[in-house]
């Protein structure tokens, strides 16, 4: 089998995952897209492992580890999402912007300035 097939498929899956991570609004959908990206990497690992005929089978072993880590990741990620949802009643990524630049502070200080000027 041509190595290009799994490699290109992995690349395309990865890019689809990138799109999903960047475009989805719901955090759980973002996590799903992350799974897609991880699986693209898994595909690469398996394909190259077979191609290289690695005696240690590093690729497949690493794939197993990745799957395990991915399972842990999704569990922890969902726990975090649930926590966020419990405190904020939302699971939308673009509404969790507490670390952003505080525009309210600007508006407040502007208002104070106007008051002082008046």
């Amino acid at each position: 089998m041509h190595l290009a097939y799994p490699a290109v498929l992995a690349v395309l899956l990865f890019s689809v995952g990138v799109y999903g991570v960047l475009a989805r609004r719901n955090v759980i959908l973002v996590l799903m897209s992350v799974e897609l990206m991880l699986n693209a990497v898994n595909l690469n690992l398996v394909a190259f492992d077979v191609w290289l005929r690695d005696t240690l089978h590093a690729g497949q072993a690493l794939t197993l580890f990745t799957i395990t880590v991915a399972a842990a990741e999704i569990g922890l990620g969902l726990a975090v999402v649930l926590l966020v949802y419990r405190t904020r009643r939302t699971a939308a990524v673009d509404e969790v912007t507490a670390l952003g630049d505080r525009h309210e502070a600007d508006e407040l200080s502007d208002g104070e300035k106007e008051q002082a000027a008046a």
């Binding site: 990865f14 890019s15 799109y19 960047l22 989805r24 609004r25 959908l29 939308a92």
Partner: peptide, 21 residues
């Protein structure tokens, strides 16, 4: 379901796909 970041996401995804392919 989609955020306002969609065009940027599309651009980045397409660019990475093109580059990597």
């Amino acid at each position: 379901a989609d955020s306002g970041n969609r065009p940027a996401a599309l651009a980045v995804g397409a660019a990475s796909a093109a580059t990597l392919v």
